[in-house]
Design a protein around this nucleic acid. Structure first.
Lengths: 192, 192
DNA sequence: AAAAAAAATTGACTTAAGTCAATTTTCAAA
DNA sequence: TTTGAAAATTGACTTAAGTCAATTTTTTTT
């Protein structure tokens, strides 16, 4: 059950058997049916999650009741409302399963203890967060300098094969455009 | 000279005198005149920088020669091309001084050594990066759900008093709109 | 397999921001 | 302090994406 998360972590830090034991002993496994919530707006967020299988989305609902997707998370991605988790404030995001999914959760206090017992995990998350930060910078730069069509093509590169798993209207939403516009972009692309 | 960076770090971790010495001994100070480059596209990036005074901008130049500002950094902000720094690849970003500025730099190898000698610095940067990641998520969410006018008002909140220091066309650029559009937004705002 | 629901597409029209050009204001250098 | 350059503003027009409504296609449920 913990194979994939251990493989994932070993890409960044080496762990002894004891450290693996200290880590896995605090993990919990959660299975979600399609459309089931992992986190709802307003929740206290005591876990951050690693996706073992399936696919989830994190989104905010604005004042007009419109959803805005900030992240898709599939196999080997981390997801949570990190602001709410970190600062122990109410969640601003909703996170739910697009497909039936399995996630591994680690509780905030357990993680804090783990940091003290095995400081390498600080390193692990520092590295992951550096990469996540750079990825978001890239996404902002793309939105500043690329056409919607180019951003859609980049999305396909960044999330290969995900279009079979996610409806177009969610992709449009993630890209910040209307489903009608994405449909027109797709039409233009096939006719070339 | 190192007062402000030490104050900044002490907000997140406690340091002994020895650790302070180990840290400050590897710092370098750099003064920049207005418009001087800290990093240019294509450079190897061996430092990350903390802004002691002044203000800088990080931006990418696209295929049409247009600049796109991804970050302003004023007092107590960190700035670099973190992708280039971390992965030791050529810089994609330019960073230059909007005003005469003083920055403190730490070299990559020195930082790696520091992480080994004083693992608390892993924690420090993990926390900083978590916050930076959340800030970029917020920025993306704003771009998805807010009007340009609302984003401009948010910018004023997020960077109070910075409008006296940065020309409007740079703010427009950062917001992803044209100077003419920002001018019209500002006009609408005063007439209310 | 049929029926219902959800998603995607298409067309006609609207709108917010972009473009381009001219003018005014502000700032910086000589 | 003047002068030139840079920045900001304004108006007229264009354009890309949004809106709304109808229709078709796909998916899900019974």
């Amino acid at each position: 059950m913990f194979g994939s998360i251990l493989e994932h972590i070993k890409e960044y830090i080496d762990l002894t058997d004891l450290e693996i034991e200290q880590f896995t002993s605090v993990l919990i496994v959660k299975k979600l049916r399609k459309r089931q919530f992992l986190i709802e707006e307003g929740d206290r967020v005591n876990y951050q999650y690693f996706v073992v299988s399936g696919c989830l989305k994190a989104y905010e609902v604005d004042g007009n009741g419109e959803e805005h997707i900030i992240q898709f998370a599939r196999e080997n991605w981390w997801i949570s409302d990190f602001k709410a988790f970190f600062d122990q404030v109410q969640s601003r995001l909703n996170i739910d399963a697009i497909e039936e999914s399995t996630v591994i959760g680690i509780e905030k206090n357990d993680l804090e203890e783990l940091y003290l017992k095995v400081p390498k995990f600080e390193r692990f998350f520092r590295i992951k967060l550096t990469r996540a930060y750079v990825a978001l910078q890239n996404r902002i730069l793309s939105s500043l300098e690329k056409t919607n069509e180019e951003q859609y093509l980049e999305f396909q590169q960044a999330y290969p094969n995900i279009e079979q798993r996610i409806p177009n209207y969610m992709i449009a939403n993630y890209l910040g455009i209307k489903p009608e516009s994405l449909s027109r972009i797709r039409k233009r692309l096939v006719s070339r």
